[in-house]
Amino acid sequence: MMFLSNSTLGEVVWTQLKFKMNAYLGAVVSLIFVQIIGLIVSMNGNSSTGSGVDNTSFTIITISSDVVFAFVGIWAVFVGKLFTTKAYRYDDFSFVATRLSSNLANFSVLCLMSIFAGVTTFLSNYILRVVLLLVSDVDYVKSVSIFEDPIGTIVNLSIMIILILTISAGGYLWGMLVQIHKAFTYLLILLIITLLVTKTGQTILQYVFIENESIVFLIVKLIALSLVFFLLAILCSNRLEVRR
């Protein structure tokens, strides 16, 4: 008598997610490393203005975690791409998996990692302030804190998280396309240049990032964009063979 065990898609995705959270710890380690580099670069400040009154002189240094965010953005692209490499895809198929369940699990992992990356990048600003006080001869640090503007902080944080997710989703789609054909490695670079240089490209970028009536609108657009990236990646990978 044959006994077949039946697992639902949800169960398998959940199991894969648990497995991946264990297995992909290296990606988190690399995130922390990237953030530290970003912080070191940020220490010099983005801009400074100096002035003096009588024999007192002062310098105002503007510090932001933009550099850290830029570094995390690059990290997000490559983590998304990393998950599509042969080694990562093959690992899934040593256990129970279908291409759909793998994609959904990867999507979930990227979501969780984006949240982690967003929160830590946001908090890196605070590290910057503390370290600055301790290390350099800065006398006074003024900044908006969570308590002064809770809603604004939450909105900023959400945008940061969702932007990281969108970028990693883009990287994921890019990786899947490269798995189908190597030529996509260069096509993406070409696409980015086209977006920045041509008029249509600029209109598209403007539409997504700038022409937003409210910040909520931007968030919705970014979430929609991430979902489109993931759906396209699922469609691309649905025919990919493993261990061939």
Binding site: L4, Y24, Y88, D91, T98, S101
Partner: peptide, 22 residues
């Protein structure tokens, strides 16, 4: 792409791979 087949079958070969972090 069938979950039931994947859950009830296994192919052991020398190309089996597992994450290096485990």
């Amino acid at each position: 792409n069938n979950l039931r087949v994947s859950g009830n079958s296994i192919l052991v070969d020398d190309q089996m791979s597992f994450p290096d972090s485990l």
